[in-house]
Write a protein that binds this DNA or RNA. Structure first.
Lengths: 221, 221
DNA sequence: CCCGGTTTTAATCAAACGTTTAATTAACAA
DNA sequence: TTGTTAATTAAACGTTTGATTAAAACCGGG
């Protein structure tokens, strides 16, 4: 006589998200090629055939992992952009913080598996293989285009090429603090506090805004 | 009757570097777990046992790939630091350019397999697994510490934590332009030119220096 | 010419891989 | 209860993996 589960159709959803959670950790820690379906199934406490049952194959599992997190990040960023531009044009600081905060906060939210996804997004964001390029194009290019347009509205003197560079530079800085490798603490003998979200956001925003403004002045030299 | 090779001991060194070249491409394109010894041997036109003969196992092969490129980068950076501080204190722009130029130039030097190594260094620089952490610690922490010290000499008002952050931010921006994923060109409809090394160096240096100065002003707000 | 050490080769090992299959179990409607 | 569908399982498929071995080919110095 097995223990009767209290919930009604309690089996499905638990397995699906348990697989996503385990896959997120595996892909982040070992890379796509280094992560194994078998180990993911073991970690998720699920039969390995379940992974193919729900996600068909390893590639689609990877895509599902990215889709889950990118969805909530981009929802927050789109809502923030909607709100920022319904009245006056905001300052660059307000805009950049709105763009980077959802990303940085997810990276610091360990309850939501954020630090694993952080390393994952850094990985495919800087890779050139088909799978990585597809993940970036599909899940992050639309919001990137909208963000670049927003930067140009806030700083009309910025040429488009400079705005693109500024956005990508800012994102790469934000991503580097999402993936907590322990290097900052090591190099600073413990002085740098990765865990303080507000201090991190403030530092990155200050750095990125000053950098973007410098790109505007850089052309006429 | 085989074609007689003109060179004297022509077999050894060709195999060793052919293996390193092929491994560099494989690790960069597929990650450590995705790259296979067999494919590397095939690409290098070498028997697969040769890889174990020269490099024992996959881990030491990876380490050898990193050691080769990091060696020449760090040699250039150390020489530049020696020269910069033998007289007056240089400006932040001169210092930052000296630190970032060797990295960016290697990434743009396709003859030296640079763009493959660029993606590789970005990958392990933002990963937390043992192998990646060891590569960063062993091959890049010493020059990082010296560079952070140099930044603090040029900007004495910068606290150490801010200097560490500034250095890491600057490096992450430089690395992001090394790994040419084609995203900048895609998002700018071809306006951003990844191939112009001088323009890239100028943009990154301007962005990074303004960002570092902003970190100095950020504390008293 | 043959010798000694290095380099290269083909063959093979056990283990792990992604995926598929067919059978079993659980849940709910009729 | 029975019929139907979805969820889960154990077992196996063929392939590929990193690594090892023992023998062959190559080479310059005696």
């Amino acid at each position: 006589m097995p223990l009767a589960p209290a919930v009604q159709q309690g089996r499905q959803k638990d397995s699906r998200t348990a697989i996503l959670d385990a896959a997120e950790r595996a892909f982040a820690d070992l890379g796509f090629g280094g992560a194994s379906i078998r180990a993911i199934a073991r970690d998720a406490d699920v039969n390995q055939a379940m992974i193919h049952y729900y996600y068909q194959n390893k590639d689609q599992l990877f895509s599902a992992v990215v889709a889950r997190r990118s969805g909530e990040i981009n929802t927050r960023r789109n809502l923030a952009l909607d709100a920022l531009f319904d009245g006056d044009i905001p300052t660059l600081e307000v805009l950049v913080e709105a763009l980077l905060r959802p990303t940085i906060e997810l990276g610091h939210d360990n309850e939501r598996g954020g630090d694993a996804y952080a390393r994952l997004i850094v990985s495919f964001n800087n890779s050139a293989d088909d799978r990585s390029r597809r993940a970036a194009t599909e899940h992050y290019d639309p919001i990137a285009r909208r963000s670049i347009g927003a930067i140009m509205r806030v700083m009309p003197e910025l040429e488009k090429a400079a705005a693109v560079r500024g956005y990508l530079f800012a994102i790469s800085v934000a991503l580097s603090v999402m993936a907590k490798t322990g290097r900052a603490s090591r190099l600073s003998d413990g002085l740098c506090d990765d865990t303080d979200t507000e201090e991190t956001v403030a530092s990155v925003v200050a750095f990125a805004c000053a950098g973007i403004r410098a790109l505007a002045n850089n052309k006429q030299k």
